[in-house]
Amino acid sequence: MNPRIVNLQEKKIVGLKSKMLQHQYGNIVALWKQFMPRKKEILNTSNSELIALQNYSDFGNFEKPFDIWACVEVTDLNVIPEGILFNTIPKGEYAVFPHKGMDASATYQKIMTEWLPNSGYQIGNRPHFQVMGEKYKQGSPDSEEDFYVPVKRR
């Protein structure tokens, strides 16, 4: 596992959010089913990518609920459709891992148990997110996306 380390500039995002506990994967599906029909109402998107974001109040304590977002990046926050929420992904250093297939939890497990302990980094206090671009194919073993993990040097 050799991620790219990037210094991300702040991203403005709009979408829908929900609370979730670890292993409540049905919440993710339900959120995306709500968001996708509304995506066409967002006229100021920066690109065609989708963003799945997780915002942990206490990363590592998976007994606490955390926020999940189904969203897109926008050029500004001046025009937001009614009922759509906004947020920002703060600037900072991220390790970016390519992921192929539909078993995201296995990739995330490898990141946390294999890469992170040997990396010289620790988890930063910013959202984790996945970017689903042109190579993302819902439900396909050939699907590709990028996992963004907030990091800071130890």
Results as ranks from 00 to 15, higher is better:
N2W: 08
P3M: 11
R4F: 04
Q9Y: 01
E10L: 03
K12C: 03
K12S: 11
K17G: 02
S18L: 06
M20L: 08
M20F: 02
M20I: 14
L21E: 05
H23F: 12
Y25S: 12
N27L: 07
A30E: 15
W32P: 12
M36T: 13
K39T: 00
I42H: 03
T45L: 06
T45I: 13
T45W: 01
T45K: 15
N47R: 06
S48W: 00
L50A: 14
A52L: 02
N55M: 08
D58G: 01
F59N: 13
F59S: 12
E63T: 11
E63C: 04
E63I: 01
P65R: 12
A70S: 12
A70K: 01
C71W: 00
C71F: 02
V72L: 00
V72N: 00
E73W: 02
T75C: 03
I84M: 14
L85I: 00
F86L: 03
F86I: 00
F86M: 10
N87E: 13
T88L: 02
T88C: 07
I89C: 09
G92L: 10
A95Y: 08
F97C: 11
P98N: 07
H99Q: 07
K100N: 08
M102P: 02
A104Q: 08
A106Q: 10
Y108A: 09
Q109E: 14
E114F: 05
P117L: 12
Q122N: 07
Q122L: 10
P127W: 11
P127T: 07
V131Q: 14
V131E: 13
G133H: 04
E134N: 11
Q138W: 04
S140N: 02
D142I: 02
D142N: 12
S143I: 06
D146G: 00
V149Q: 05
V149H: 02
K152C: 09
K152M: 11
